[in-house]
Design a protein around this nucleic acid. Sequence first.
DNA 1: AAATATTCTCGTATTTTGTACGCAAATTAA
DNA 2: TTAATTTGCGTACAAAATACGAGAATATTT
Lengths: 226, 226
Amino acid sequence: MATPNISLTVDAIVFGYEPKEGLSVLLVKRKYPPFKGRWAIPGGFVKEKESLEQAVERELEEETGVKVNYLEQLYSFGNPKRDPRSRIVTIAYYGLVRSANFELFAATDAEDAQWFHLSELPKLAFDHQKILDYALERLRSKVGYQPIGFKLLDKKFTMEEIHHLYEVIYGRKLDRRNFRKKFLKLEILEELEEKSGGGRGRPGSYYRFDEKKYLALEKKGMTFEV
Amino acid sequence: MATPNISLTVDAIVFGYEPKEGLSVLLVKRKYPPFKGRWAIPGGFVKEKESLEQAVERELEEETGVKVNYLEQLYSFGNPKRDPRSRIVTIAYYGLVRSANFELFAATDAEDAQWFHLSELPKLAFDHQKILDYALERLRSKVGYQPIGFKLLDKKFTMEEIHHLYEVIYGRKLDRRNFRKKFLKLEILEELEEKSGGGRGRPGSYYRFDEKKYLALEKKGMTFEV
DNA sequence: AAATATTCTCGTATTTTGTACGCAAATTAA
DNA sequence: TTAATTTGCGTACAAAATACGAGAATATTT
C-alpha cells in the first residue's frame, strides 16, 4: 500500500538583493555524483518528524548558513526521470533575504555556497534551472500583488531603494514619480523622521512597511497592487 | 540517506458545473479507517514509474470514473500530523469538468462517489476541507486571468452561460452588458451561426473558445482579464 | 392576433485609474 | 556662489472601468 520507493526532498531558491548588485541567487556546489562539482540549489531529504518548512530551513542553515526572511512554497516537481538515481520528488520553495552578501560567509566556506548574480548563472544540476525559472516568474508576479518586496530590503528604506528593486525585478524602467504616488496611496508605509544622508542630491525620507496597517486594510478588501 | 518512512500521495479537488446547479465538488466515501464512512476528496498513492499527473488521473478514473478537462497542481500539504497513521505528504491538484452530473454515474456506483453542491458540503476527512478552501480560492483568482472557465462549459456556450458561470464563481453580480463587452474585446471567442432557442426572450448566439487565437495573442503579450 | 414580458445586443455618458512630464525645493560637488 | 543632482508635489491627458438607456428578437399571455 505504501510507496517506499519514492523519496521526498525539499529545495529552495533563495533570492538575495543588494542595491548595487541587484538580484542574486544562492547556490551550492555538489560534492558527490551525480552532477559532482556542478552548482545546484540547496535542499535535501525531509525527515520524518519535521514539517516541510522546517526541512527547508534546516537544509538552508546546514548547507549555507542563511536564514530567510520570507519562505513560500513554489511547486512540486515529480517527473520520474528528474533524478538519474531513483524516483525523487521534490517540493520546491523560494525564499527572500535582505543584505544578500552579509549573512552567508559566516556559517560556511565560500567554496561550497555562493551568491550568483542573475545574469551570471552557471549551468545547474538536475532540473534546477527549470525550478529557478519558475521561482523567478512567481517572484515577478507576486511582488505586484503582495507586499513581499520589503523582505529583500532593510527594515527602513528609501523610495529610491524600493523603486530600484521593482525595476530590477521587472526588468524595466518605472516612472519614479508615478511609482511613488501609487505606493504611498496604498497607505501601508510609515514615513520616518530620518532622512537618507550621504548620497548626492536632496535626501529622501526613510520609510518602514507597516504590517499591521496592511493586514487591517487587507481585511477590509484593499488590494495591494503595483 | 533516503526517506523510507514518508509516503507520497496525490489528491484532487474536481469542480463540476451545471448551469442550473452551479458549482459542485466530487467526493468519495471512505471505506476503511481512519475516517471510515466520511467523505473525502479522491486520491491515492503515487506509483514509482508514473508522473504525478498520471497518478491523479489514474486515481480519479479508478475511484470515480471521471476524466477531467483541465488539471493543475495546487499545493503540497505535508504537516506531520495530517494523517493519524503515518507521515503522508500529499500533492494536491484541482481539476475542472463540464456537465458535471453526466459522466460520473456510469463508471462507479453512486454510493461511493458523488457530486456535492458547494453549499451542501459534508464534513470532510483529514485536512481535506483546507485543501478544498485552497482550491476554491485558486479557482476564483485564476478564472480572472487565465481562460480556464471554458473548461467547465460545453464546447459551445452562450454569453448568458459564461456570464452566469463567472457570477457563480465570484459569488456576486456582474453587469451583463459590460461583461459581454469585455469578453468580446479579448477576441478569443468565435461566434457561431447557431442561436440558442428554447428559452424565453430573444435567443443569443452560441460562442466557442478559440484556443489557437488565444495562444497567438498571448504570445504577443495580450493578457486575459475579466 | 395583439399586447406584454423577457432577453440579447448595441451604444453612450460618467467616473476612475493610469501615464507622461513640468518644476520648485533640498542637498552635494565644483 | 554656481552647477548638478535628486526628492517631492502637482497637473494635464489618455485609457479603462462602470452605470445604464433603449431598440431588436423572441416567447408568453390575453
